[in-house]
């Protein structure tokens, strides 16, 4: 793995880690590497994918996890005693949206911008996540409330990004939880 990809993984990790911490969970652990050719996740699973693209970069993020993680991070968990699978599918899609939103803010420091797609969600038992894409797919496994969250992603840049040169975020770049009023 090159230094370049290590930096990318660091940014993806921070994007996901910041998201999980923003939901109020505190027990978040992380391990990263390259995705094996095939990795079967057992049990009832929820998976969302979200693409992003611009002239400089195109990529995708896929999150696969269990109901326990989705329920533990849902902002309505104090008020809704039992979530349906439809509720879980909705929130796992929003998880992808917020994680890629964080990534977008991090990459803005390196003058990289992109547009996000809306998330696509699937759910089912024993999902096999196979790396058959042309582009390199990386994986980060988070443990959130003691359960696994698998985060697969790829990002291809048409122009190499100099991760050693960070430009400060533009004044109107707004972070999660912040706001601007005009």
């Amino acid at each position: 793995m090159t230094e370049y990809h290590k930096k990318l993984i660091e940014l993806f990790n921070s994007s996901a880690n910041d998201f999980f911490l923003s939901t109020g969970v505190t027990d978040v652990a992380v391990a990263s590497g390259e995705l094996p050719k095939e990795a079967v996740e057992r049990g009832q699973l929820f998976s969302s994918s979200l693409g992003f693209a611009s002239a400089k970069v195109k990529g995708v993020v896929v999150i696969t996890t269990q109901a326990a993680v989705i329920d533990a991070t849902n902002p309505q968990r104090e008020y809704i005693p039992v979530f349906s699978d439809a509720d879980r599918a909705d929130w796992v899609g929003e998880m992808a949206n917020q994680i890629v939103g964080n990534l977008k803010r991090f990459l803005a420091k390196y003058k990289v911008d992109f547009s996000l797609s809306t998330p696509m969600v699937i759910c089912g038992k024993d999902l096999a996540v196979a790396n058959v894409a042309k582009s390199q797919l990386y994986v980060v496994e988070f443990a959130v409330v003691g359960k696994k969250v698998k985060l697969c992603y790829s990002a291809e840049f048409s122009v190499p990004v100099d991760f050693d040169v960070s430009v400060s975020a533009e004044p109107e770049q707004v972070a999660g939880g912040d706001g601007l009023f005009f």
């Binding site: 977008k104 707004v174 706001g179």
Partner: peptide, 20 residues
């Protein structure tokens, strides 16, 4: 949270921008 989108929204008359 990007400046270009915020500018576009301001141009359309948006009064505020909150980030999730």
């Amino acid at each position: 949270g990007g400046a270009a989108l915020i500018e576009r929204a301001k141009g359309a008359g948006v009064k505020g921008w909150l980030v999730k």
